[in-house]
Structure formats: structure tokens, C-alpha cells
Nucleic acid binder design. Sequence first.
DNA 1: TTCCGAATGTCGGCTGGCCGACAGACAGAG
DNA 2: CTCTGTCTGTCGGCCAGCCGACATTCGGAA
Lengths: 233, 233
Amino acid sequence: MEANQGHLSRQSGPTDFLARLSSADARDLVAASQRKLFAKNEFIFKAGDPGRHVYFLQQGRVKICQPAQEGKDVILWFCFAGDMFGMAEVARGGGRVVHAQACEASEVLVLSQTELTDYLKTHSAAALLIMQILADRLRALGDVVVNLINDDAQTRIIKLILRLATRYGVRVDQDIHLNVQLTHQEIADMVGTTRQTVTSVLSQLQRQGLMRLENRRIRIESMELLDGMTNPT
Amino acid sequence: MEANQGHLSRQSGPTDFLARLSSADARDLVAASQRKLFAKNEFIFKAGDPGRHVYFLQQGRVKICQPAQEGKDVILWFCFAGDMFGMAEVARGGGRVVHAQACEASEVLVLSQTELTDYLKTHSAAALLIMQILADRLRALGDVVVNLINDDAQTRIIKLILRLATRYGVRVDQDIHLNVQLTHQEIADMVGTTRQTVTSVLSQLQRQGLMRLENRRIRIESMELLDGMTNPT
DNA sequence: TTCCGAATGTCGGCTGGCCGACAGACAGAG
DNA sequence: CTCTGTCTGTCGGCCAGCCGACATTCGGAA
């Protein structure tokens, strides 16, 4: 019954895997999976580990990070409650190429590769949904590539903020509140720049009155003005 | 019968979609699709077009290119005979975000989104294969991101050459022949640098005896030495 | 074979932001 | 409340490669 409690207490969002399945399909998937807890900063898996399970995040936040052979690791994305992760290596075989680390205490449903394959044989809607999610991530990474090539660091940071705000922002009065705590280093690792540059850009945006930071949470005062800064005149 | 002739005349490769399905699954897919020819430089689809078909390249070469709002378009990858493309927008819905352009006269099998959805309901092995391919592409793009952030332009160019050689190279005596004609601009658009920088790097690699160009085709004289140049001492 | 558009070779000025470093602030654990 | 590890703020030297430009070469169509 614990798995179902986790299911019921979770907030539903647009990337919420289980909520986008039919009740029967979701029930079958939950029944086939196991619930696991991870402490803050604990690795759910690391690059090099066998890729034998897929995960559905019920509560918490998980950072998906691709290490470089030499150089800076790159944060590819964060997973929030409802998100699926760990699917790519399960689908393509081979070991993990990314780390998945809990940014806060997190609860996940875990499904083994074998169980998943069996499940998908009789649940074609779920297979289509997985394809959608993989395709969404392809698009997101394609955008990251194009931005890395074409945009300066400030533009990349602003675009990241806008993306996060669009996806996870909450309107409070005139502002958009982004209730995710991100360090400057994390922002840097997402847009491929240095922590010092992020610090400098955020400081500038705050001086210009476009946003402010409260306890490492971003408060956007004008999405329109911010967006305007990403387009050349 | 023409569709089947195309099928039989194609060379089989590791990314070859149809060859990796069972005969029955492949036959059903071919039966549901239509054959189309595209002339060199013709667009199969462009960014902004509706994403209503998925394509299986039978012959030829197709460039998948993501345009930037402002700035340089980025070549995400080339598709070769056997490759599937156009799946992402079919899976996730919405219009195309990339262009697909034939680099040479090309023949494709075309399957509509509706037919694909129906097909996948009764062919779960194909759904798994599509998931694999999408996951492979995710990995490829993840690597591109990490390389853009961490590597200098020379390293990125060398890594691209090694990747292409590993995938599409043919051993001839001591050399590896890459039988794909690539302009310096195309290489630049794949690794996010300028044409001039590519010219300069390739010139240097040739002077060092690591590779040579014949009719715009790369001939690698030492994979090991090239690979050694991508790791710092 | 000829011709021409595209591709390649070359050059040097300029700059965004990396880098290493250090000091001060602060969030959160105990 | 205290303490400490992490995070943020600041600084200035340095350089990879972008950029614009122009000349030469070359592949492929006619």
C-alpha cells in the first residue's frame, strides 16, 4: 500500500509519467515496480553502473549529470516529481553514461529492465509515452547544442532561466517564482560556463531589476524584458 | 514490388532499422509505407513543417540540421541507408524543429503517424527498437554537449573524425577510408566552429601525417595517433 | 573540354570569458 | 547558538578562435 500512497500524495505535472497513463496501465506499472528512498546527495546510479532499471520519481529532485573524461561535468537536466529517468540505457543497452543524484531526499519507483520489457509488450500506450519523453529530451538537448554554439554566456543563462520558469515557475503577484534552489555552479554546469560568469550575469540582471534572488531561488520580475534580452536588435 | 526491390538492394548496417526487425515485422512496416525519391539538395522536410511522417532511408544520405533563431544552423547528424529519421516530432507531436535535406539522390520509405501508431500497437519489438534509436541519439547529443563545453575546436574536430571513422570507416591497407564527402563548412556545422578553423586544423593534421584528404574524403593514417591527440597528457 | 559557383587557403585584429586566487557571507547541521 | 563547509563576490591577465576579407583552387555540370 505504500507505493500507492506515494502515488496519491504526488503533485501532478505535465511531465508526469504515471498521470499520463490510463489508470489500469499506471496500476500495472506500479504493481511491477518497487519503491526506494534516497537521501540527499545520494547517487541513484553513477556512470559506469549497469543500466538495468528505470526510475519514476515520486518525490524529490534528481540531477542528471554527464561526466566528461577530462573537464567539467555537465548537468543535462533535473528530474522533478513525476519524471521518468534512467530509461535511455535500459532502452539502448550498456552501462550508464550519466550520474543520477538526489538533490534532496527522494522517493522513486524502480522497474527492472526485464519487467519493463514484459510490461511494454502488453501496454503499447506506455511505449508511445516513453518515445515521447525521449523525443522531448532530444529536442531539449538539440536546443542546448544550438545555444552553446550561437549564444554568449549571458544569453544562455537567461534562456535557461526562462526555460525553467516556463516549466516550473509559479506566478505570485506580478512575479514568477522559481521554487528550485540552484547554486551558481549548478547554473554554470547547465549552460557550460564558469561559476564566476554566472555570478556576474545574475548580479547584472539584479541590478537591472529584471530578477532577484531569495535564498537561492529566482524571482523573475519581467519575463518579457528577460526574453527581449535573448533576441538581438 | 518496387518497395521490396529497394529493400533488397540496400546495404545492411548496424543502424539499419528494417534489418533489425524480424522479417514479418519488417514486411508489415514496408507494406504500410510508401516509397519516395528525393533529388540531391531537396528538403524532405523543413523546420516548421507538420511532423506527420517518419522516414526510413533506403539509399542516399540525409542531413539533419537544427536551425538557430539567429546564428549558425547546426548539423546534428547525417542519416545513411537504413537509418530512421523524423521520428522525434511524430513521437512528441508538434511541428518539425529540424530540416532534413538530401545530400545526394535519396530513396526513402515514408510511414504516416497514424499508420505508425497502429503498427506499434501490434509490433512491440519495433517500439523497443525505436526507443533504442532515440536513446542512442540522446547519448550522441549528450556527448556533443560535453565536447562543446570541454574541448577546444581541434579536439572536437578530431573526435568527430574518429566517431565517423568508427561508424562508417572502411579499412583499406593500413588506412581507414571514410567514404563520405564532407566540406569544411559541414564539419564546422557539426562541431560548432568556423569553416576557417576547420580548414586550419585539417591542414595541420595533414602536415603531421595523421590523415589526408582525397576528393574531400578523409583518409586516416593512424587512428591511434589521432585518438591520442584527444587526451591531455 | 570548358566554365563557374562553391570550396579552400590565408591573414591579422579583436574580445568574451576562462582562469586562478582570495575574501567575505551564509545556510544548515549539531 | 556556534561553527564550518560551501557559496558568492570580486579582480585582472591572458588567449582560442571568431570575424571579415580576399585570393586561389577545384569538383562537377553542361
